[in-house]
Computed example of a mutant assay.
Amino acid sequence: MYKKSFGINGQIQFANEHEYYKLIGFLAKSDGSTSLVWEHNEEQGAWGSEGRIQIYRAILPNNVGRLSLSAGVGNIINRLNCNEFVQDIVRNHGFVMGVQQDKENVLETIPDEFKKDFEEGYNA
């Protein structure tokens, strides 16, 4: 569900709901641009699990919010670490871990007034 800011350190911030739903559309693409992962870092002695969005393309669509990206590894260009946002899109928008998302399942969760924003992100 829309909030202006996600994450303890504000890793994801939106100016408005249009940006939020455009990012949701972009993440629902299932074309290899992104993947959703839950890394169990505590198994390697780190602080704890992290919800991450892995990004495999260099250019992101405009107006999808302010994202605090960190460098990726290998073919991952950037990562977006934000447990709160990953939990939000899984719980409220039908996302699943991995590369493949069910567009129609996600689209059902989008209010009618923001479906155009979703489609803009999806087609970016």
Rank of each mutant, 00 (worst) to 15 (best):
G72W: 01
A46L: 12
E50P: 00
Q54M: 10
N92K: 07
S5N: 08
Y122W: 07
A28S: 14
I89N: 01
A71D: 13
V64I: 15
Q101H: 05
L36Q: 05
I53G: 00
L60T: 11
D112K: 07
I77Q: 10
P111N: 09
E108Q: 13
N81V: 15
Y56N: 03
V73W: 06
I53V: 15
G121N: 04
V106L: 03
L107N: 04
I53H: 01
Q44T: 11
I76G: 00
H93M: 09
I110N: 04
Y122F: 14
L69W: 02
K103S: 06
F114R: 12
Q44M: 06
N41H: 12
Q100Y: 03
E120F: 05
Y20P: 04
H93C: 12
G10S: 12
T109I: 03
D112W: 04
G65V: 04
L80K: 02
F26I: 09
E50I: 13
Y20N: 10
Q11I: 08
V96N: 03
I53L: 07
G72C: 09
V73P: 00
E113V: 15
E84M: 08
S30T: 15
D102F: 02
S35K: 12
I89S: 05
M1C: 11
N81L: 13
R66L: 09
M1Q: 12
I24A: 02
V73R: 03
A46P: 00
S35G: 09
P111K: 15
V90K: 06
I53Y: 02
Q101V: 15
N63A: 14
G45I: 11
I12P: 00
S35W: 05
K115Q: 08
F114H: 14
I59Q: 15
F95D: 00
G25L: 06
W47E: 07
K4L: 09
N9K: 14
A124I: 06
C82M: 11
S70P: 00
L80D: 01
E39D: 09
V64N: 01
E104M: 11
Y2N: 07
E108G: 09
G72L: 12
F6P: 00
A28G: 10
H93K: 08
G10W: 14
N78D: 14
E43C: 04
